[in-house]
Design a protein around this nucleic acid. Structure first.
Lengths: 224, 224
DNA sequence: CGCGGGCGCTAAGAAATCGTCAAGGTCCGG
DNA sequence: CCGGACCTTGACGATTTCTTAGCGCCCGCG
């Protein structure tokens, strides 16, 4: 989940925001002043910064400017000041949004979601590649020699489970209960049938598999 | 220079905003209601939209939702309502910022700059083309051999979901809950009926589809 | 060497899913 | 009130997928 850095000199606000944000699934770090905020932001990656302008050490606008020197992280400004001058300065310094106190938590959360929606990286497609074939988990697709291979639902379920755990041994029990259901603990025969089909569709040499390996008596393993 | 689309039913506000924006170097187009706003945004590229929520024809959040179906353009909402519910709904529908009236022009301009800073490139054309047909997501139109194909609302919803996720397998559950609602998880034969109709209208050879593919037991896939 | 268990492989029947058609049903404008 | 557009629903063979049984192989073991 997303990581939020809360910068505010008031310990009560830090605590309240921290609790609310954590309750909504964010991980939270806090800083009481500008210097420590900049240090904290530099030390571990942050997805969004909530920044109170009234800091004891540095001017809030300066914090924004210094942060923007090296980071493009979205910044949401909190401020007690309603004057439009402050807003313009903060926004032009590089802030992305500006809320005046008092504010509603649900509005703050909605604005946070809007900011994170923008900065969410173009979704990384989990793609697994081997010498012989390519599995695209997001598209739900398998390629071999550039052509896509059509798998039945059961074949796909087995392949997905194996491919999501590369090099890891998956026991027959795991496979059976994951794909067929908990009641099918004894039907090891199914596995032989479907592993044979998968190898026939994916392995260059089905009789001598190099990626879908058998661990005799225990289960199967996917080798990238 | 950046192109701004101003959507407001009040001609005075349109005029005042237009003058102010042009004085600041923006090019401006305007729309008095939701429908014309959507058409305008579809016809020529827009860098940012300023949207009043109180429109005469469509609900403001609906405008946002429909725009977001095909465009990632930043949206700045103007509203007379201060209630946090409205804000949350608009922001979660896809808006990027929200100002309540009355507002200062300099604040509006600063927020506009903040939005434009993030999105340099104008949005891409939301038109998907295949050998057989062309789908214009913005205008809700489908062309085949240069001729308009008329689709029913349900047909369009299905096609849109598939076409917005090219090459991606969409499960029957996804299609049913997106198009009919979450309660229709089991009515898989609706899909068969409508996929047949879509193929009859769009595929050169409906019995042997090349773009609207079936993944037996799982769902459907659009192949450009 | 003979035996048995686990595995690879095949194929046929059973079951589920799919494409297709057509018969209502509903809603709305003329 | 009627007609048309649209959505539901049921039924049918055609196709795909699942299940099950059978056979031969390899390998460890008595």
């Amino acid at each position: 989940m997303s990581n939020v850095l809360v910068v505010d000199d008031d310990a009560h606000i830090r605590s309240a925001l921290g609790i609310t944000l954590r309750a909504n699934g964010y991980t939270v770090s806090t800083a009481p002043d500008g210097e420590s905020a900049l240090v904290s932001a530099a030390q571990h990656p942050v997805n969004v910064v909530i920044l109170d302008l009234g800091l004891p050490d540095i001017d809030g606008t300066t914090v924004i400017t210094r942060l923007r020197k090296w980071s493009g992280v979205p910044i949401l400004v909190l401020s007690a000041r309603h004057g439009s001058n402050d807003k313009v300065q903060a926004l032009d310094a590089g802030a992305d949004d500006y809320i005046t106190k008092p504010f509603g938590f649900d509005e703050l959360l909605a604005r946070l979601r809007a900011l994170l929606r923008r900065s969410l990286e173009p979704d990384e497609t989990p793609i697994i590649t081997t010498d012989a074939f390519t599995v695209d988990l997001a598209l739900h697709r398998v390629l071999r020699d550039g052509k896509d291979v059509s798998l039945t639902p059961t074949e796909w379920n087995i392949l997905e489970l194996l491919v999501r755990n590369p090099e890891k041994l998956i026991t027959q029990q795991q496979l059976l209960s994951e794909v067929w259901g908990a009641a099918y603990g004894k039907e090891a025969n199914y596995l032989r049938v479907y592993m044979a089909q998968l190898r026939r569709k994916l392995e260059p040499e089905p009789g001598n598999p190099r990626h879908l390996l058998t661990e005799s008596g225990i289960g199967y393993r996917f080798q990238p």
